[in-house]
Design a protein around this nucleic acid. Structure first.
Lengths: 202, 202
DNA sequence: GACAAAAGCGGACCGAAGTCCGCTACTATG
DNA sequence: CATAGTAGCGGACTTCGGTCCGCTTTTGTC
């Protein structure tokens, strides 16, 4: 009954370096800002070689994403298992509203990490698992709320588009909108889309 | 009555090099694709130095944009001075629909140049004059169609978001949607937004 | 503890974007 | 045509993201 070998055991030095790198990155961002932080800086600050850095994190944007992967995971968990209206239990339309607001407030809370516009905003946005997750979620809620409609998939994308980091930062910094104003806007958009489809019975 | 000195006269060699560069760029894109085209390649193909290339075009994405600036300009002219429903004369709601469809078909017609996702899609999208122009246009049409609403500005952004190159290419390539399907989706979104506000009288 | 396999390390290296600055050659003027 | 002033040229150079591959450390086995 020796437990099944832990599928992938992380070697001790690997783990140590991974943590060093994450701490060093956070420290550097705090000290010089994301824009001025080169990958060489990170490697040096962490006291590891550049190869190690890239072996663990693949590329720059993945490294940055790793920094917020924990709260991001927590947010996703809330969507699936959390309390209403974010989690299951509330009517789908209400959950949809809560979802958008949740994403926007999440973005605002982690503005430091996404401010370069790289995170959740780069050209990889659409192919990243996180987009697939959000898309599935919104698709489900929208279908529950108003059934299958001709342009269902498009509406899902349209609802998700203003929740990207890029437009958010633009509205926040250039337009100088408050988070509340942005949320209000999204709620209005959400209502418009919901109202445009015949409400499902039940 | 010697005409006023032409504000900025372009030196002969400058003009020659500018044209050489644009031709060389188009040729290279055609030959090896945007992704494999380095700025050194362009300079070499055009037979100019790298400094010249950058002096004229600032950076890579500006160079690419310059390639479609002519048809882009033509499209903008059509919006202002063209025939209805794109130009003035048609009811604002109808013009709004025509605008979105126009942008989408424009994107499709120039997919070669925007396929790298750099053009009209980079982080500069929102600060580029072209976005300001589109924004003003949509803002005007939306206001004409349904008056001032609480989230006017947000709705404008929301309508414009799915007209960016990035989501367009995603829908086209990954989702394998036809241009017509994408247009249909946008029309539906447009209707939803228009319907969500009290119609203006008049 | 000795050993072998392999997971992981690290920094030299590469390619490409973008900068800098001394030189060239075009244009305006007498 | 000679000259001066300046717009424009060009390529060496810098920076930075990302790759490669020989070397080191860890871990499982006897």
């Amino acid at each position: 009954m020796s437990g099944p070998a832990p599928a992938e055991r992380e070697r001790a030095d690997a783990r140590r370096n991974r943590e060093r790198i994450l701490c060093a990155t956070a420290r550097l961002i705090d000290r010089v800002g994301i824009d001025c932080m080169s990958m060489d800086d990170v490697a040096a600050e962490a006291g590891v070689g550049k190869g190690t850095l890239y072996r663990r994190f693949g590329d720059r944007s993945s490294l940055l994403r790793a920094l917020i992967s924990e709260p991001e995971q927590a947010f996703q968990d809330e969507l699936i298992r959390g309390a209403p209206p974010l989690g299951p239990g509330a009517p789908p339309a209400e959950r949809l509203h809560a979802f958008g607001e949740g994403v926007l407030r999440f973005l605002d809370g982690h503005a430091v990490y996404i401010q370069a516009g790289e995170l959740l905003a780069g050209s990889k946005r659409y192919t990243h698992p996180v987009y697939a997750f959000y898309m599935t979620h919104v698709s489900y809620l929208l279908r529950e709320a108003c059934g299958e409609t001709p342009n269902h998939q498009y509406m899902v994308d349209a609802l998700l588009a203003p929740l990207a980091a890029q437009p958010f930062l633009y509205q926040r910094k250039v337009r100088e909108m408050s988070v509340d104003e942005i949320c209000a806007g999204w709620h209005a958009l959400c209502d418009a889309v919901l109202a445009s489809a015949p409400a499902a019975d039940s």
